[in-house]
């Protein structure tokens, strides 16, 4: 299977690649439009600031390809946030890929420390194959200050001060707000589910 990790110019590409390799997969890291368009499955990773990542995607001429993906694609952390229509960052609103309706805003952590950093619990809401063998209360590793609100596209929720979307899905496009590549057995299970996913 051709599995392509989209090179967004962000820093955690190799961690994501290693995580799939531990499962026996052989992902390629690429920013070539043709390689991405013809991949069987796509991974959109990302850490850092949304405007920086979107600028990289734009500069690499990948916007129109990503807006039209038909194959299964999973966004990770910032990569998931980029799937939404709009994102807030430092008080500004920027445009995302628009594959999942909704807006990503600052997390309302109430009086808890921010960023939301560490292991928090997943609350699966639906029977979606990406969440096979994931139980309510399983822990995943989060590190972020922004998040998507709960919506009809929320497959699993998490709560830190207030609830937000931990796993999202619309049609062939899905995302994890946490880092499956750093979420021990729970994360490995989700990546394995992604590899086995048939939509």
């Amino acid at each position: 299977m051709s599995l392509v990790i989209i090179d967004t110019g962000c820093a955690n590409l190799s961690s994501v690649k290693f995580a799939f390799e531990r499962l026996g997969a052989e992902p390629t890291i690429s920013d070539e439009p043709l390689t991405i368009a013809t991949a069987e499955k796509l991974i959109l990773p990302g850490v850092g600031a949304a405007p920086f990542a979107m600028d990289n995607i734009r500069r690499k001429d990948l916007i129109s390809i990503l807006k039209q993906v038909r194959q299964p694609m999973i966004g990770i952390c910032l990569g998931m946030q980029l799937l939404y229509e709009t994102l807030e960052e430092g008080g500004e609103i920027i445009e995302g890929l628009g594959l999942i309706p909704g807006h990503v805003g600052a997390l309302d952590t109430k009086d808890l420390p921010s960023p939301h950093m560490g292991w928090n619990q997943l609350h699966p809401l639906t029977d979606f194959p990406l969440l096979n063998d994931i139980q309510t209360g399983d822990y995943a590793y989060f590190v972020h200050s922004y998040g998507a609100p709960l919506s009809q596209y929320t497959m699993a929720a998490c709560n830190y001060g207030s609830p937000f979307t931990a796993v999202a899905r619309k049609d062939n496009v899905m995302g994890c707000q946490f880092h499956p590549e750093r979420s021990s057995k729970v994360g490995a299970q989700i990546l394995k589910n992604f590899l086995e996913l048939e939509l």
């Binding site: 190799s14 961690s15 290693f18 995580a19 590793y141 880092h179 590549e181 750093r182 021990s184 994360g187």
Partner: peptide
């Protein structure tokens, strides 16, 4: 890089 390839926690 060696650690990252083996370790699945942050």
């Amino acid at each position: 890089s060696l650690i990252s390839s083996e370790i699945d926690i942050p």
